[in-house]
Write a protein that binds this DNA or RNA. Structure first.
Lengths: 111, 111
DNA sequence: TTGCCACATTACTATTTAGTTATATGTCAA
DNA sequence: TTGACATATAACTAAATAGTAATGTGGCAA
């Protein structure tokens, strides 16, 4: 995977998915769904975001393949499509931590 | 890493970095840099993007910590900060491939 | 049916951002 | 110095997008 030379189409798909994760509100939704499957109202409640806003973000995450929708009567339950998303977040968090460490080290040296 | 409950600050930093990867032009630049360290002009040449545009994208990738800058006389050489970025791309590409497989499988079933 | 509820969608505003053109900065050579 | 070159920055336009308020849609209960 991630062949050395990537076609424009692959670049677009990659970018589309990274962009889907490039929004705090959506990461918050994913993080909330990590606990358990939830309805839209529950997510509105637990995130403090507006209903229409949550609905839109969920559509986007859905079409990017990160979450799935299940209809039950009046409710729409959203759930993680798989928890591979968090492997991505783990990697990225690792980068963040490392850069923080390096910043601190640089400050020490400069002192 | 990627603690179960993420602070707003961490969510913002995560999102910022994912957003940096959420642009085909920037992925293209990273992909080009995978081969070797390159100057801005070389990247302009190899990507077909405008000079000012490339420069801006490079700044952004730099401040997101994905690449580093080295000054040599008249030139600015950009290089990957580390190739951990491609681990992220690998994971994401894996997701893309899987979703393609699932789409194909769904089509077969529906036929 | 009627009304209510959960969610989706539309229409809109404000903000962000990709891309471009023009210009500024900085380095080297003559 | 002057001029040429590489890169950065500023100013701007056009497009994308987050957020919101209002409305639409569909299922359930009475």
């Amino acid at each position: 995977m991630a062949p050395k030379v990537m076609t424009p189409a692959l670049l677009d798909q990659l970018a589309e998915r990274f962009k889907a994760l490039g929004e705090p509100a959506r990461l918050q939704l994913l993080s909330a769904l990590r606990q358990r499957e939830q309805t839209v109202s529950q997510l509105v409640q637990s995130t403090g975001l507006g209903q229409a806003n949550v609905s839109k973000h969920l559509q986007l995450l859905c079409s990017a393949g990160f979450i799935a929708r299940r209809r039950a009567g009046i409710f729409a339950f959203y759930t993680l499509a798989d928890d591979g998303v968090f492997a991505l977040c783990d990697l990225m968090c690792g980068r963040i931590e490392r850069s923080h460490r390096e910043q601190r080290a640089a400050l020490k040296l400069a002192r």
